[in-house]
């Protein structure tokens, strides 16, 4: 199995900096992408992958929503985590969370974000993804010794 990776789509390096230590500790790959167009191409080689998408709930562009749906359709094995850029009023949070999960995100986080919460969420997801791609070894369909052909 190839090394797991975290791909961050964010306008700046704040999120990447928060994750760098966690990524180094686990020897994962960290890729930071600034352009939406380059994001989907990061998941062509199949490996345990977390896609982290930073969004501003006041200004979500249609392309970002389309990209989330496309990624969820074409790479269901990739866990998409949406991370809010700005604080969201409490009364709007359930609608946004439910809408993003419905589109195909696996988790939604809003500020205030601490490094501990980010690390717990991402390491939990990475464990789940790694386990999912490490399926049990298949046993041979026929037991040769029992069949008498062991020579």
């Amino acid at each position: 199995m190839k090394a797991p990776q975290i791909v961050v789509l964010a306008p700046d390096d704040w999120l990447g900096n928060q994750l760098r230590e966690l990524v180094n500790d686990h020897r994962w790959l960290l890729r930071e992408v600034r352009q939406l167009g380059a994001f989907a191409g990061q998941f062509e080689d199949r490996r345990p992958s977390l896609a982290i998408v930073q969004f501003d709930w006041r200004d979500v562009c249609a392309e970002l929503a389309e990209m989330i749906v496309l990624l969820a359709q074409e790479h269901p094995e990739v866990a998409i985590i949406a991370v809010g850029d700005t604080k969201i009023p409490e009364e709007h949070a359930p609608d946004w969370t439910a809408a993003l999960l419905d589109l195909g995100c696996r988790w939604v986080l809003y500020p205030p974000l601490t490094r501990a919460v980010l690390e717990d969420a991402l390491s939990g997801w990475m464990t789940a993804l790694t386990d999912r791609m490490r399926w049990p070894v298949a046993e041979p369909a026929i037991d040769l010794a029992a069949g008498g052909y062991e020579e």
Partner: peptide, 24 residues
């Protein structure tokens, strides 16, 4: 599975959690 229970509790029952709205 694999996620800390406080994260799931926060998503469902925390401030602005899914259980506080009727979207789900």
């Amino acid at each position: 599975a694999d996620l800390q229970p406080y994260l799931i509790e926060g998503l469902l029952f925390g401030k602005g959690g899914l259980a506080t709205g009727r979207s789900a």
